Simulated scan of single mutants.
Amino acid sequence: MYRLFAAIDLPPDIAAQVQALCLGLNGARWVQGEQMHLTLRFIGEVDGGIFRDIKEGLATIKAPPFSLQVKGLGFFPPRKPPRVLWAGVTPVEQVSGLRNRIENVLVGMGLEPEGRKYSPHITLARLRDTPLAGLNRFLAGNGLFATPEFAVSEFHLYASELTAKGAFHTRVASYPLR
């Protein structure tokens, strides 16, 4: 079985800027810079035959390259104890358009549609028993965070392995935007 997701990678210099935020918050399990990405679609566990179909199906996607900027911070869920600290991206229209193309290909293959609303973000940390006051101070102190724009010219298919030390992602295919 393969646990899959489609994502956009951050260029190393952008990932380093985002990674520099990752300190000083109690109860945060920070994501390592090399594991940071912008998830387009979590696919889930599939067997080898579906895996090959997905790899081939994603290769049919046509979407133009675009520019992105990492900008702003927040957390999920908004009205319950916080579980995820994230960085946002702008503009979201191009990301959402690419994500919708991926979703259409996957649903066209018979996979279940993703049930929740898509909210483009980069996970910075998983939170556990993080005091809300500390999280609010962190957000206030870093609220103006923004990186320079960067070009997005491809997306990737990743396999994810869950371990006691967290998830580890391996790129299994890349798809140019054109």
Results as ranks from 00 to 15, higher is better:
3 R>V: 08
118 Y>G: 04
100 N>R: 14
38 L>I: 10
154 E>Y: 14
116 R>S: 12
103 E>Y: 04
122 I>N: 00
125 A>K: 01
32 Q>S: 14
96 S>G: 15
109 M>T: 03
79 R>G: 02
59 A>Y: 07
110 G>K: 07
21 L>R: 01
73 L>H: 00
102 I>G: 11
138 F>L: 02
132 L>K: 12
32 Q>G: 14
121 H>D: 04
171 R>D: 05
81 P>S: 12
55 K>Q: 13
108 G>K: 04
153 S>N: 15
133 A>V: 13
130 T>K: 00
21 L>C: 00
153 S>I: 10
134 G>F: 08
88 G>D: 07
102 I>K: 07
5 F>R: 04
29 R>K: 15
39 T>K: 07
64 P>L: 12
153 S>K: 14
129 D>P: 14
126 R>N: 06
98 L>N: 11
116 R>K: 15
117 K>W: 14
107 V>D: 03
16 A>N: 06
169 H>N: 10
27 G>E: 11
111 L>M: 13
84 V>Q: 01
18 V>E: 01
117 K>R: 15
61 I>W: 11
86 W>I: 04
165 K>I: 02
88 G>V: 07
68 L>S: 07
37 H>Y: 10
165 K>W: 11
33 G>W: 00
55 K>R: 13
1 M>D: 11
164 A>T: 14
21 L>N: 00
23 L>S: 10
57 G>L: 01
72 G>V: 05
6 A>M: 06
127 L>Q: 02
144 L>H: 02
124 L>S: 01
152 V>N: 09
8 I>W: 07
166 G>N: 10
77 P>R: 03
173 A>R: 05
91 P>G: 12
96 S>Q: 15
150 F>R: 02
115 G>E: 13
124 L>V: 01
80 K>H: 10
129 D>Y: 11
114 E>A: 11
163 T>S: 15
121 H>E: 03
146 A>W: 00
116 R>V: 09
74 G>C: 04
10 L>C: 11
47 D>Y: 12
6 A>L: 05
159 A>P: 05
5 F>E: 02
148 P>G: 09
67 S>L: 08
175 Y>C: 09
65 P>C: 15
81 P>R: 15
77 P>L: 04
73 L>I: 01
13 D>F: 05
73 L>K: 00
150 F>L: 05
111 L>T: 12
43 I>N: 08
159 A>H: 13
117 K>D: 15
52 R>W: 08
147 T>N: 03
128 R>A: 09
158 Y>T: 03
165 K>P: 09
29 R>N: 10
6 A>T: 10
95 V>H: 06
119 S>M: 12
85 L>F: 02
5 F>K: 04
121 H>G: 05
129 D>M: 12
169 H>Q: 07
171 R>M: 10
79 R>C: 03
